[in-house]
């Protein structure tokens, strides 16, 4: 009995300390939260291809204008568009156009998307550096991902089964490639579906028979150097046209590289002041310089004019 009461006495201060500590933490949370609520919060969600680029744009923007807090998350273009429709984000990143079904659903829910092009991506087909193949035609890339060409030998490479890497169906890149390169045919069921661009790069680096597709920003590392272990293929529009690399600026700007696409952001209706200011920063010469520094490409005049109309 005596021993027990002794223990009880010792336990009490500990319990008190715990309770006091917890209440202090709770108090701190309550005190701090109104302060952070005063900052303007902008939620940005969507395309995995764009997440790094937009993250860097957001960071630079926040150091310049500390009044706004931007939160950028990935998840895929489909996820971003779904979030705009469901009203769970302020700005959606997407690397493909809205699908008709998505537009219908948006209008049904009273959502009026406004679409801005903020950069241009040259979709890059990557293989392992040990692969002797340098160039493929669009038709060959389509056949490979449809599963019609199964061996590298057919393309003049070594004898070995082609190991396919791709994105998941919520990815804008997945849809874009399906529409523009696979001619709206099904992907091969053998495609290994990875979680994002970075995982595809990682897998192709390790897999000598691998082939995958990524946004051009992902073929560079943090220091802007071309990543080791992979090779970015040159693409021919068809058998008789010249080959172009997605790393060749002039070829992309003159639209000679066959699989380039705009990268978009969408808002619901007229963008709010905070979102509008961020969009203007992205489209400014300063923002576009960051886009180029990250390996993507500036947007052309036509798209820029369209953007300015949408901002109003």
């Amino acid at each position: 009995m005596k021993g027990q009461s002794k223990i009880k006495k010792h336990q009490k201060p500990v319990a008190w300390l715990l309770t006091a500590g917890l209440s202090l933490i709770l108090l701190a949370v309550f005190l701090v939260s109104p302060v952070s609520a005063q900052r303007k919060m902008v939620q940005i969600k969507g395309s995995d291809t764009m997440v790094n680029l937009v993250q860097i744009l957001a960071e630079e923007y926040m150091t310049k204008y500390p009044g706004t807090a931007l939160a950028v998350v990935g998840g895929g273009s489909g996820t971003g568009i779904a979030a705009i429709i469901n009203g769970t984000c302020d700005l959606a990143n997407h690397s493909r156009d809205w699908k008709k079904s998505e537009l219908d659903l948006a209008y049904e829910k009273g959502v009026r998307p406004r679409i801005f092009a903020i950069a241009v991506d040259a979709l890059s087909i990557v293989v392992n550096e040990k692969n002797p193949i340098d160039t493929l035609t669009m038709a060959q890339v389509g056949s490979i991902f449809r599963g019609e060409i199964k061996n590298w030998k057919v393309l003049g490479g070594p004898d070995g089964k082609i190991s396919l890497y791709g994105r998941q169906s919520n990815s804008g890149t997945y849809s874009f490639l399906q529409e523009h390169v696979l001619n709206n045919k099904n992907y091969s069921p053998e495609v290994k579906e990875m979680n994002g661009n970075a995982q595809i790069i990682e897998a192709v680096t390790q897999d000598a028979a691998g082939i995958g597709y990524v946004g051009v920003g992902y073929v560079y590392d943090d220091r802007g150097q071309l990543r080791k272990g992979i090779k970015v293929l040159k693409i021919k529009k068809d058998e008789n046209s010249p080959e172009y690399s997605p790393l060749d600026k002039d070829a992309v700007y003159s639209a000679k590289y066959a699989i380039s696409r705009p990268l978009y952001q969408s808002t619901n209706g007229k963008p709010s002041a905070a979102v509008s200011q961020f969009l203007q920063f992205e489209l400014s010469p300063e923002g576009q310089a960051i886009v180029e520094r990250e390996g993507f490409f500036r947007i052309g005049k036509d798209l820029m004019e369209q953007n300015e109309k949408n901002l109003r």
Binding site: G75, G76, G78, T79, A82, I85, N86, S101, E102, L105, Q168, S169, N170, E193
Partner: peptide, 8 residues
């Protein structure tokens, strides 16, 4: 994989 993007 698919639940995140599927239209409700």
């Amino acid at each position: 994989i698919e639940l995140g993007e599927v239209p409700f």
